[in-house]
Simulated scan of single mutants.
Amino acid sequence: MFPDLTRDDVFRIETRRLWLRWPCAKDADAIVQLAGDEAVAGMTAAIPHPLDRGTVDGFILGARRDAIEGRSLTMAVAARSRPQTLIGIVGIAPDADAAGPHLGYWLGTPHWGRGLATEAVGAMVEAYFAYTPGTVLTSAARIENAASRRVLAKLGFASEGTALRPFPARGGDLPTERFRLDRRVWERRGAHAAAGLVAVHV
């Protein structure tokens, strides 16, 4: 799905305030702390609570392997002023049950409320449409997760209604709002400008 450009760990995306880069072993403690927070984990399908170091180490290794093979792209989110300090994750991976690949993301609670999720997700979406031939991106958010739903709406994702979606880390299926973004909508909106994208480095 992803081209050679993204398959090396020197690949990164810069926005006005953020770096998006490959996750690495040094990020594990931050992921355990931030993603292990019940307020974060509880809104996701796959992050257990509590979150242990072994699970995180496996996640990082899997993310790097899948990026090398071009199957998916998972990026650590960090402030440009502290590029080695992870504050969240954004990723795009295949979804056999949807019209296109699935976009997922989380941000640690100390960094909520400043538009950073919108900036990070917007940059990732821009990179997807710029560097792959994909025509559609999908996403979903729990009905209770109003902040995540606002992020997707700001970036031009259209709601496709509600449906049950598997949340294995939460013990079963949960109601979500499903979203879709078509390439032509993204191009028409010029959403990359709103996301504050500065540069892509390889």
Rank of each mutant, 00 (worst) to 15 (best):
G88V: 04
G156F: 02
G196K: 06
T135K: 13
R183G: 14
R165H: 11
D95L: 05
G115D: 10
W112E: 12
G113S: 05
A76S: 15
R183I: 14
G134C: 14
Y105W: 15
I87N: 07
P3K: 02
T44G: 03
T138I: 01
R189T: 04
P133Q: 10
L20H: 06
L116C: 08
A25M: 06
V32L: 03
P23D: 07
V10E: 10
D29Y: 05
A147H: 04
G58Y: 04
P48R: 02
D97L: 15
G134L: 15
D9G: 05
G108I: 11
R165A: 01
A141N: 07
P133F: 09
R149N: 05
L155S: 01
G161M: 03
A28D: 12
D173K: 13
A99C: 12
R142Q: 13
D97N: 14
G161I: 00
R16G: 08
K154L: 02
E119H: 05
A35D: 03
T132K: 12
D52Y: 08
P48F: 08
D27R: 05
R17H: 15
G70Q: 09
I47C: 08
P48N: 08
G172C: 12
A163R: 13
A117V: 09
S72F: 02
P166W: 01
A30H: 07
H192C: 07
D173V: 06
L103P: 01
I143V: 14
V56N: 00
R114S: 12
A96Q: 15
A79P: 05
V198I: 13
W112A: 08
F11V: 02
T176C: 10
R189A: 15
R21C: 00
A199Q: 07
L34C: 08
G70K: 05
G42F: 04
R188H: 10
G88H: 03
I60R: 09
D8H: 08
G100M: 06
I60Q: 09
H111K: 08
H192D: 06
G91P: 00
L86W: 05
R188A: 14
T44H: 04
I143P: 02
T118A: 14
G91S: 15
G58Q: 11
I87F: 11
L116K: 10
S72M: 00
E160Y: 01
I68A: 15
R12D: 03
I87H: 07
W106H: 05
V200D: 02
G91L: 00
G70E: 13
L174Y: 01
A39D: 12
A195K: 10
E69S: 15
D182G: 11
R184Q: 13
A141D: 07
G58W: 02
W19H: 13
V56S: 02
V10K: 04
R142C: 06
R170Q: 15
Y128V: 09
P94C: 11
V136W: 04
W106L: 09
V32E: 10
S81R: 12
E14F: 03
R142P: 01
E69H: 10
P101W: 11
T176Q: 05
W106V: 02
S159Y: 01
G171D: 03
H111I: 03
V90G: 07
E119Q: 09
P175V: 01
A130P: 08
R82L: 13
F2P: 08
A99M: 13
G100S: 09
